[in-house]
Amino acid sequence: MRFLVALSHWLGQTHLGVFIRDSSYAFAAIEMLHLLALAIFGGSIILVDLRFLNLGFKTQTAPAVARELLPLTIGGVIAMAISGVLMYAGGPMRYFHNPAFQLKMVLFVIALAIHFPLQMVAARSLEVAPARQRLFQAAAVTSLLLWFAIGFSGRVIGYL
């Protein structure tokens, strides 16, 4: 915890952090990039999870969908993380103590740990073994719920 506080203070005092804090447009511009990345990331996450649940993209196998959309989900999450860190750098302590932000970060770590191993394991296989289908479906539902909750808590940050 102390490390995170120190890191946040340092981030807020970097040139970039000060610039984002003082500029009238930087935050708005970064936030828009965050939303643009969300559109690509959110859409591809939904489709990967729906495929695991046999609810969409059925002409391709689940591993094929997981493989083909991996650049979009990974690229999307990287773009969202970078733009997210930049928004945070503009006023770290404002967010550090914000309960919605804290919740979002906890859920984000859990979602990363559930979704990406799932998608990457699937992407490497030829087909999902019948014995593991239930596991994949449970993980897909959890992943969907987590990403929705992250979206909601993200919006709440601005209202607290």
């Binding site: 690509i40 859409g43 996450i45 939904i46």
Partner: peptide, 14 residues
Amino acid sequence: HTLGIAAVVGTIAI
């Protein structure tokens, strides 16, 4: 609304 946009724009972008 935002999550709806993610579904629309994400699927169209694919």
